[in-house]
Design a binder for these strands. Structure first.
Ligand SMILES: Nc1nc2c(ncn2[C@H]2C[C@H](O)[C@@H](COP(=O)(O)OP(=O)(O)OP(=O)(O)O)O2)c(=O)[nH]1
Ligand SMILES: [Mg+2]
Ligand SMILES: [Mg+2]
Ligand SMILES: [Zn+2]
Length: 576
DNA sequence: GCCGTTTTCGGCCCGACTGTTTTCAGTCG
């Protein structure tokens, strides 16, 4: 059975191929819109009451196509196109400067079917004879073939570091009046393609010159009077887009450049209903030849009679269709009172229990849980039941010594490849907090892995399942797991699912968090999985991802007082 | 292909940069 994500991927691929074939781009976009609706749907496709056409942007045609996928696993229109189009054509889209129109032309006029043939045609000087092509484009494409577009996006944490460096540097420039990061970075998306910066200045050319002459610049991608893009080497290669505007346009430009694209489109459509036109320069009233500029983004939303929407929600995942009172009061960093997943030198951490407790108290936390690995995770120095007893004594001593922080004795216990748990119930029941998680057998099939996790969820002593999909951003895909069944079981048993705040994980992700809350009413727990005191800083990414998942403080048990937390932990065990 | 408190047909967000062109198309953000 295909899940929503797989169906969405097929529809997106169909859109790409339609465009390559030279079809109406609006038609391709219609499939993209449908693909997004499928991916963002809180309900699985086979459980939509009236079928796929319930989703916005899915009409008769696409609904039929989706039904076909659900029945046969194939998208017929896509299969046909794959048959019809040369298999090397789609990858040409990854050459910078080449789009569907040019590829179509190259294929039709020169018979180019892949990048090798394109290179040959370029070298033979055939390409420059085509309308719209010339010498410069020939050179640019030869260049571009060597340097296909990069696919690995940057971790948010790395993007934020680079952005902060650039922001500080530009802020010192005498002609720079204001500078702010925008784009996916400002929306705190888990990975970013590039760094987008908005600058207010009276002298854009001067600032642009400063940008392109920074020592880290490898290449100037383009440079005009209002925007400049450069490739930087900051330990690794990263693209930076700087948008330069007049001071009074700063807010409109920041809003535009923060996106997302899809949110911008909805925002602009909305403005058209008032007879206005939105661009990065403001909101323009065409009848009265008047352009409004703004002092705050709040005013921009107000102008369109919309509630203010924070950057993290600007993904067109429903935020434009809510009244002010229906938008969530998102969780804030200040709401967070304690971290329930961390490691010490007892396993693979770098600090002692006491050091972790002191660092947590320093952060203003009320409690933490020490959750070292269990015996089967030998590479991480997993603890035996005997170790746990001795560690409990150490934790008791730290609790005795320190005021203002409470340390819970816990474990991060392996869910073994055969689906059993690494400790028997009699060991677990002595612990204040039990986390279960998968660290092996990632390649097993969906049914096997789902059953392993369900075993843990149903165990009467397990409070939390950590990093439920096992993904490592840019490194390892999520293992095959049926999250809907896990969500259902979590709702029934009360077992919590984690949002692991490690910037390499952010697992559960924003979409799944939203679905877990809206379709299953789940609460979650945000934890850093810190292996050192500094790593507790990762909570920032956890809270940001929770906000992107539309979560409020009440949805996250780490906002509870110690008293409330203990009650919840008790409740989970009594309920099972 | 989808959609409709002015529409069941004719739009579908809007602008910058580049390279080609002598007024604009394609790509990208
Ligand atoms: N109105 C409009 N705005 C766009 C469009 N494409 C991009 N933008 C705006 C919104 C984006 O957030 C912003 C920056 O573009 P990027 O390509 O860098 O995308 P973004 O940063 O959102 O994601 P990324 O992680 O870079 O892929 O520019 C578009 O087609 N229309
Ligand atoms: Mg970006
Ligand atoms: Mg960008
Ligand atoms: Zn851990």
């Amino acid at each position: 059975m295909m899940n929503n994500k797989q169906v969405s991927a097929l529809l997106n691929q169909l859109a790409d191929l339609l465009e390559l074939k030279g079809e109406n781009p609006f038609k391709a976009n219609a499939y993209r819109r449908a693909a997004r609706a499928v991916e963002n749907s809180r309900v699985a496709l086979d459980e939509l009451e009236k079928g796929p056409e319930e989703l916005p942007g899915v009409g008769k045609g696409t609904a039929a196509a989706i039904r076909g996928i659900m029945e046969t696993g194939r998208l017929e229109a896509l299969d046909q196109l794959l048959e019809e189009l040369p298999s090397g054509l789609p990858e040409l889209m990854n050459i910078p400067g080449l789009g569907p129109k040019s590829i179509h032309l190259l294929n039709r006029e020169l018979g180019v079917e892949n990048k090798e043939q394109l290179e040959e045609a370029l070298k033979q000087g055939k390409v420059r004879t085509l309308p719209g092509f010339g010498e410069k484009k020939e050179k640019k494409l030869l260049d571009g073939i060597q340097r296909m577009k990069r696919f690995t996006r940057h971790l948010l944490i790395h993007g934020l570091t680079v952005a902060e460096t650039l922001r500080e540097r530009l802020a010192e420039h005498p002609e720079v009046l204001q500078v702010e990061p925008a784009g996916s970075l400002r929306r705190m998306k888990e990975t970013v393609k590039d760094i987008d910066l908005v600058v207010a200045t009276k002298h854009p050319e001067t600032v642009a010159e400063t940008v392109v002459s920074m020592p880290e610049v490898i290449r100037v991608i383009n440079q005009g009077s209002t925007k400049v893009s450069v490739l930087l080497r900051m330990g690794w290669e990263i693209q930076v887009d700087v948008r330069l505007v007049e001071p009074d346009q700063f807010i409109s430009a920041l809003h535009h450049f923060t996106g997302s694209k899809e949110h911008n489109v909805r925002f602009r459509q909305r403005a058209k209903e008032f007879g206005w036109k939105v661009s990065e320069y403001g909101i323009h009233d065409e009848d009265h030849e008047e352009t409004f500029t703004f002092a705050t983004e709040e005013e921009m939303y107000q102008k369109l009679q919309l509630p203010y929407i924070v950057p993290e929600l600007r993904e067109d995942r429903g935020e434009m269709d809510h009244q002010a009172e229906d938008l969530p009061q998102l969780i804030r960093a200040e709401d967070y009172r304690g971290d329930l997943h961390m490691h010490t030198r007892w396993s693979d951490g770098s600090a002692s229990v006491r050091e972790m407790a002191l660092a947590a108290r320093e952060r203003g936390y009320e409690y933490i849980a020490i959750t070292d690995h269990s015996r089967s995770l030998k590479v991480a120095g997993g603890l035996t039941p005997d170790d746990l007893k001795r560690q409990r004594e150490e934790i008791d001593a730290v609790n005795e010594e320190l005021d203002g922080i409470t340390v819970l004795a816990g474990t991060e216990m392996d869910i073994l490849p055969d689906g059993t748990l690494d400790f028997p119930d009699r060991v677990l029941k002595e612990l204040d907090l039990v986390i279960a998680s998968i660290h092996s057998g990632f390649k097993q099939d969906e049914e096997t892995i789902t059953q392993r996790v369900l075993n843990a969820v149903k165990n009467p002593y397990v409070h939390i399942v950590a990093h439920p999909t096992g993904r490592l951003l840019n490194r390892r895909d999520p293992y095959a797991i049926d999250l809907d069944r896990v969500f259902e079981a979590a709702a029934k048993t009360g077992t919590m699912l984690e949002l692991n705040a490690n910037p390499n994980r952010l697992d559960l992700n924003d979409r799944d968090l939203k679905r877990a809350k809206e379709a299953y009413g789940l609460n979650v727990t945000i934890n850093t999985d810190a292996h050192s005191p500094e790593m507790m800083d990762f909570v920032r990414f956890g809270v940001a991802t929770a906000r992107r998942g539309w979560l409020e403080a009440g949805d996250v048990i780490n906002t509870y007082s110690l008293e409330q937390l203990r009650q919840r932990l008790d409740y989970i065990r009594r309920n099972k």
